[in-house]
Nucleic acid binder design. Sequence first.
DNA 1: CAGCGTATATTCTGGATCGAGTATTAGGTA
DNA 2: TACCTAATACTCGATCCAGAATATACGCTG
Lengths: 205, 205
Amino acid sequence: MAKRKISNPLALAVLGCLYERPMHPYEMAMTLRNRAKQESIKLNYGSLYSVVESLERRGWIVSRETEREGRRPERTVYALTKSGEVEFFDWLSELLGVPVKEYTQFEAGLSFMAALPPDAVVRLLRERSDLLADEIKQMNEYGAMVSDAVLPRLFRVESEYWQMLREAELKWVKQLADEIENKELSGIDQWAEFVEQLSQQERSE
Amino acid sequence: MAKRKISNPLALAVLGCLYERPMHPYEMAMTLRNRAKQESIKLNYGSLYSVVESLERRGWIVSRETEREGRRPERTVYALTKSGEVEFFDWLSELLGVPVKEYTQFEAGLSFMAALPPDAVVRLLRERSDLLADEIKQMNEYGAMVSDAVLPRLFRVESEYWQMLREAELKWVKQLADEIENKELSGIDQWAEFVEQLSQQERSE
DNA sequence: CAGCGTATATTCTGGATCGAGTATTAGGTA
DNA sequence: TACCTAATACTCGATCCAGAATATACGCTG
């Protein structure tokens, strides 16, 4: 599984938009926004235009025409090519079929958790739990608002996935906080003195 | 919560290493490798040196001495400063206490799932399940090998977290595949014809 | 002891990425 | 009608970062 030459998920979104019909970049951005896809694919204008450029270099999309309405800025409309369609399906299949390791910020934090005193960690994990619970509540409220008639589940599985991950995390974080508090975590007895020792060090300005 | 000036998690790892004792960059890399932290924080040499440089520019670390053993390449030893220690704790606390949105590849794939025919999606999700199950099995075997005596749980919570996420995903992916297969997903009746329609389009070379 | 792979330690380069900036028009309002 | 804000559409520049390249030393094998 060699690394894809273009790996920014935003490029997949561009291919996905053009799979439906030709568009200019700003229109793709609007389309993604309207469908709430920017919740699952990071959209920023700088990246959008540079990604479109590199897709064109690869020959996966072609610029069709540059139109202008009135004296608004000129806009370039792009269309998907045959090879672009192949790449789209191929990439999409790989994303769905093959799990890859992703690095999360929280994981990085957990890696160095032991540098903080146990009680501070418990406090932070509780704070995280609360914020996660809020977020989940909001997602539920929003989800209840959007009925199947408006947007069938088919088009919002990605947000269900994300919500599921957050719920799983919430449960886990609560449990970890409890385990630390109840001193059930192996290594916890050395932890406090370990932290104490390290905090003695002198630092230059 | 303004964006951190240096946001690469590898920088946190550098601060974390130097919190223990002064080191040169290559030594940090080895330390992280030995503790299997590169499983949760992406480590690559190019980034390591550039991150160290920018930490120095910020004044969070200082270069102490450049030594050389024999005629091996010269190496620069860095130490944490007071402000670096402050940044380390501050950053670490934020990572643990405040959940942030992260964009995963799979989510991006799910966002455009509807572009593939239902049966293809089911096949891909089953493939993913199998691979996830393998991965989980391997993590379990590895975890059983590493006893608490060797490496207390305190120092491997990050891998437990990751494993938990994968297990949750596995369960969810299986369920989604079943729902599609049993046509329980709302919108599924239009799906097939929607795909059919789009696939009719002509593409330039 | 010549040769080869691996470990040590860092630098270099070009492409990716992000946020901020620019310019125009449309629409609302006081 | 002059002003303000929001929307439209894109561009620019600075930084970030991955991967490859470089250079030396060590240890093993035949």
